[in-house]
Amino acid sequence: MVLDEYRSGILLFNLMEKEVWNKAMVDSTGLEEFYQKNKRKNYKLAEHVVVRRFVSKDSTVLQSVSDQLEKSNSELDSIFNSQEPLTLRTFEEKIEKGKNDWLDDHWEVGTSIQKEKNFLTLWSVVSVQPDGYKPLAEIKGLVISDYQNELEKGLVEGIE
């Protein structure tokens, strides 16, 4: 009985690997179809801003950054953190309306500085984007996971 149970477990694992886990990873057409079919209910993106965010304890660092916004975040990171690490932290983000009170009050292209207790944040709003859907390329891992769940559900229903 133990050997039969072991053999069944191995067979089930191999079946799941072939029909669910690997299939979702390599079936780009099926993944795209799944995304298109489910994007309206699962992958919505509300109105949002594309921002570059810079955090530092030193206001002169942020003033210098604001004068060099044409440079990439990695270039700014290497300029300001070469002497002392973590002088400047850089981020590029998409933030939905209603998720950040400061940005909600500064919902336009441009820069603004937010003062906190121990640090300052320079917000550079690059663009304001309307409602839409999260691009597959940005959420591929999540979509693959959802697709695997659907494939597994279909496989289980087919076995029963």
Rank of each mutant, 00 (worst) to 15 (best):
P85S: 04
F91W: 10
S82C: 08
K71F: 15
E92S: 09
I95Y: 03
N100D: 15
D101V: 14
E96H: 08
E84K: 14
S82Y: 09
K94L: 09
E93I: 11
S66E: 06
T87Y: 01
L69P: 08
W102Q: 00
K99R: 14
T90E: 00
E75K: 05
E92F: 09
Q83K: 15
T90M: 00
D67F: 01
F80K: 04
L88A: 05
T87I: 09
L88Q: 00
K99C: 08
T87D: 04
S66C: 07
E96T: 12
I95C: 08
D67T: 14
L88I: 09
N81I: 14
I79M: 07
S72M: 01
L76A: 05
N81W: 14
L76W: 03
L76S: 07
K94W: 05
F91I: 13
K94I: 06
L76I: 10
E70V: 11
R89D: 10
D77Q: 09
D77V: 08
E96F: 07
N73I: 11
T87V: 10
Q83C: 12
D77C: 05
K71T: 14
I95T: 12
L88H: 01
K94P: 01
S66D: 03
S74N: 10
S82F: 12
L88K: 03
Q68E: 04
K94E: 06
E84Y: 08
N81Q: 07
D77T: 14
Q83S: 15
I79N: 01
K99S: 15
N100G: 06
W102S: 01
R89E: 13
G98I: 02
L76H: 04
I95F: 03
E92H: 03
F91R: 13
W102I: 02
Q68V: 00
T90S: 07
S66I: 05
L69V: 11
F91G: 05
I79S: 04
E70M: 06
K94C: 07
F80N: 02
E70K: 13
Q83V: 15
E93Q: 14
T90D: 00
E84L: 07
N81R: 06
S72Q: 04
K71H: 14
E92T: 08
E92K: 10
T90C: 13
K99W: 05
G98F: 01
L69F: 11
F91P: 03
S74G: 08
Q68R: 13
S74F: 14
E84D: 07
K71P: 06
N73K: 06
D101L: 05
S82K: 05
K99M: 10
E75A: 05
L69S: 05
D101G: 08
S74D: 14
N81E: 11
F91H: 14
L86G: 02
D101Q: 14
D101W: 02
E92L: 03
K97V: 15
T90R: 00
K94V: 08
K71E: 06
P85Y: 08
E75W: 02
Q68S: 07
Q68I: 01
D67W: 01
K94D: 02
D77I: 05
N73M: 04
R89Y: 12
N73E: 05
G98R: 01
N100S: 03
